[in-house]
Simulated assay, not measured.
Amino acid sequence: MSNISDIIENYLKQILQAKGKNVIEIKRSEIADQFQCVPSQINYVINTRFTVEKGYIVESKRGGGGYIRIMRVIHQDKSDLIDEIISMVNPTVSQQKTIDVLERLLEEQIVTQREAKIMLSAIGRETLAFQLPLRDEIRARILTSMLRTLKYLNK
């Protein structure tokens, strides 16, 4: 069974897809009322599930007429997307941000499920048994190398 965060995330993604514009504006309090949760739960979902690494830009305006705007970043060229991710993960990248990047590569059909699992096992904290921040630096270098290989394989 899905938890409330998963349900809210799926709902917001369905709205994004249904609109076909890759942009939605929501009121945090209205979504919280709809799902009978506290508004901070909506913040949590947006802050963890709609990140730059996952291909989203989030803007918000506070106040009575405030809103949260979620935009899905669409790249015409997979090479440009890979370049953007490479710049995002350097000079260091955490395990969670790596997972987010791999999920995005899966969604964009740049890697298969199998390739993503192999990549994650190669750069996971169990494999890279170094102290921080060295571990995140090495992870970024290995991920960058993998991404460059993908970029040139896709051409």
Rank of each mutant, 00 (worst) to 15 (best):
M1P: 09
M1D: 13
M1N: 11
S2W: 12
N3Q: 05
I4S: 04
I4V: 12
I7S: 08
E9W: 03
E9L: 08
Y11M: 03
L12A: 02
L12C: 04
K13S: 09
K13A: 07
I15D: 09
L16E: 07
Q17K: 15
K19V: 13
G20Q: 04
I24Y: 02
E25Q: 14
I26Y: 02
R28I: 04
I31T: 02
A32Q: 03
D33H: 08
P39M: 01
Q41H: 08
I42G: 00
Y44A: 09
V45A: 04
N47A: 10
N47D: 13
T48N: 13
R49G: 03
F50N: 01
T51Y: 04
V52D: 09
E53Y: 12
K54W: 05
Y56C: 01
I57V: 14
I57W: 06
I57G: 07
V58N: 02
V58Y: 03
V58P: 01
E59S: 11
S60R: 11
R62E: 13
G63W: 09
G66I: 05
G66S: 07
G66A: 04
G66Y: 03
Y67P: 01
R69T: 05
R72C: 06
R72K: 15
I74V: 10
Q76M: 09
K78Q: 13
S79K: 12
D80Q: 13
D80K: 13
L81C: 05
I82F: 03
I86M: 08
V89Q: 02
N90F: 09
N90T: 14
N90C: 10
P91Q: 06
V93T: 09
S94K: 07
Q96F: 10
K97A: 08
V101A: 01
L102P: 00
E103W: 08
E103G: 10
R104E: 07
E107C: 12
E107T: 15
Q109N: 14
Q109P: 05
T112W: 03
Q113M: 11
Q113F: 10
R114F: 10
E115T: 08
K117T: 05
M119E: 01
S121Q: 07
I123V: 10
G124V: 02
G124Q: 06
G124H: 03
R125L: 11
R125F: 08
E126C: 09
T127P: 02
L128T: 06
F130M: 12
Q131Y: 15
Q131M: 15
L132V: 15
P133F: 03
L134K: 15
L134H: 14
L134G: 11
R135N: 09
R135D: 11
R135T: 12
R141W: 11
R141N: 14
I142H: 02
I142D: 01
L143Q: 00
L143N: 00
S145H: 12
M146L: 12
L147Y: 02
R148N: 15
T149P: 10
T149I: 14
L150Y: 07
Y152N: 13
Y152W: 15
Y152L: 13
L153D: 13
N154W: 11
